[in-house]
């Protein structure tokens, strides 16, 4: 339980990585790292795809990276219409990447591929927890 609180609207109730949401409420955006082989994952996984271990730990994601690409959604799936338009993008940290929405205070015309960006936890007014890409 607990994962239904993730994102604008969650489609997953139960997952072994639900602690991700608790970490968001503590202000942390974390991935998982395998205790056996050291493989790092984001989004988090409960099982290591490299060595098959289930012995995983949490680690804090880098706070700054570069925007690899982005899109501005003018239409939305059912349940997201009120947010339109919203920008979503991909951040490259070198070793890992992260997909999320961009902060509302980043104007679409100021968003550029390759720009420096930061990652921040985000709480919506209805209590849903997420993270977003913000100005560096």
């Amino acid at each position: 339980m607990g994962f239904e609180k993730f994102g604008r609207k969650s489609f997953t109730g139960v997952t072994k990585t639900a602690k991700f949401v608790d970490l968001l409420t503590e202000g942390k955006v974390e991935g998982t790292v395998c205790k056996q082989c050291g493989a790092k994952f984001f989004p988090p996984r409960a099982d290591c795809a490299s060595c098959l271990s289930k012995d995983m730990d949490w680690f804090e994601m880098p706070k700054k990276g570069k925007l690899e690409t982005f899109t501005i959604a003018y239409y939305a799936p059912f349940g997201f219409e009120k947010d339109c338009p919203y920008t979503m993008g991909l951040v490259d940290f070198g070793e890992l990447k992260l997909f999320a929405r961009l902060s509302k205070d980043l104007k679409p015309e100021d968003v550029k591929v390759g720009m420096d960006v930061a990652i921040k936890p985000l709480q919506y007014e209805d209590g849903q927890m997420s993270f977003e890409i913000a100005k560096a």
Binding site: K9, P77, F99
Partner: peptide, 13 residues
């Protein structure tokens, strides 16, 4: 659906 759909993704995006 676990990690991306909660942001409001769709095919064209």
């Amino acid at each position: 659906i676990q990690w991306e759909a909660p942001f409001g993704t769709m095919m064209p995006a």
